[in-house]
Amino acid sequence: MINKFLQPLFALSLCAASSLALAQDVFPSKPIKLVVPYAAGGPADMLARGVADKLGPRLGQPVVIENKPGAGGHTGAELVAKGPADGYTLVLGTIAHNGAVKLYKNLRYDPTNDLQPVILIAESPSVLLVKQDSPAKSVAELLALARSQPGKLTYGSAGNGSAMHMAAELFRYMTKIDYVHVPYRGGAPAMADLLGGQIDLLFESLGTAHQQLKGGKVRALAVTSTTRNPSLPDVPTVAEAGVAGYSSVPWYTISVARGVPPSIVSKLNAEINAVLKAPDLIQRWEPLGVLALGGSVADAVKRNQAETAKWSAVIDAANIKLE
């Protein structure tokens, strides 16, 4: 039995313990970090910043972008996968983490098992670009140019296993051309070298290609989707341009470390879904050819599984290997 003189103190301690437990249960109670595993300025970075700007006010905490490029997007993703499973560190995932995992033989983590998908963010086709002064004015002319000088043309990417890399390797496999891959630490530096003439072509995300297209510095030869994109109605698909059956549509997710409590994953999913339905975000992305997705955690897992099956088959069939 508790001494009557100690009862007020005991009651006070119970209240304090209850308050502490409640405080610990409230998520989020501090800023959240969204890791973009590529250099600033690329498609993943653009999408992450669009989401973060609106997600912070909804959660009542800042959502801070941190660019951690390296290893084709795996440096940043590994940091998240091996970090605390508390939901305070997110990662913007791409095909490198969600579909082309078979390409990597010596990763120090397992993207499929060490990362928990939270939500599908968006999808956007890539666009095959050459510099404005390139002699290739169509896919047919580009193929003729490549075949006239095997192994001479170069293409850039955001890194090994990136959407840019896989789109170009699928193109190589289906057209039987030979060109040289130049991997960068993100899409932005790859675009800079295309503009500077250091590389010959690029499968850039449509979302970030529009600025250069409007400036007249690059020429779009084809989009990688199965249908033409409304933002570039006069640009054919790669399939229309002569490579029958070609299709490559990059998709993006937000993931956390495996082991984050389901209640936190569910809360993040719900709040990001709300962000992706914001009319001004949709209006900003649609003219760039970016389709906001959203949906359940299960939807993200299902998409990743389907894409992994597709790209694993492509990697095997095309015998794609890292340099």
Rank of each mutant, 00 (worst) to 15 (best):
G42E: 10
G42Y: 01
G42I: 00
G42A: 13
P43I: 15
P43L: 12
P43C: 13
A44E: 15
A44P: 09
A44W: 04
A44N: 15
A44D: 14
A44M: 14
D45C: 05
D45R: 02
D45K: 09
M46N: 08
L47D: 04
L47F: 02
L47K: 08
L47C: 02
A48Q: 11
A48R: 02
R49M: 01
G50M: 01
G50A: 12
G50I: 01
G50F: 05
G50H: 03
G50W: 00
G50L: 02
G50Y: 00
V51S: 03
V51T: 03
V51N: 00
V51R: 03
V51I: 10
V51K: 04
A52Q: 15
A52V: 11
A52C: 13
D53M: 14
D53L: 13
D53H: 09
D53T: 11
D53A: 15
D53I: 06
K54G: 07
K54C: 12
K54W: 09
K54N: 10
K54A: 07
L55I: 13
L55G: 07
L55D: 07
G56Y: 06
G56R: 04
P57E: 10
R58E: 10
R58M: 09
R58L: 15
R58F: 01
L59D: 06
L59S: 12
L59F: 05
G60H: 13
Q61R: 12
P62I: 13
P62T: 00
P62N: 05
P62A: 13
V63A: 05
V63I: 12
V63G: 11
V63F: 08
V64Q: 14
V64S: 11
V64K: 15
V64W: 04
I65Y: 05
I65V: 07
I65G: 04
I65W: 08
I65E: 08
N67K: 09
N67C: 13
N67E: 15
N67G: 11
K68M: 15
K68L: 15
K68E: 09
P69H: 10
P69W: 05
G70L: 06
G70R: 07
G70H: 06
A71S: 12
A71R: 08
G72Y: 01
G72R: 00
G73V: 07
G73F: 04
H74S: 05
T75Y: 02
T75C: 00
T75M: 01
G76D: 02
G76T: 11
G76W: 03
G76I: 01
G76V: 04
G76A: 09
A77Y: 07
E78H: 08
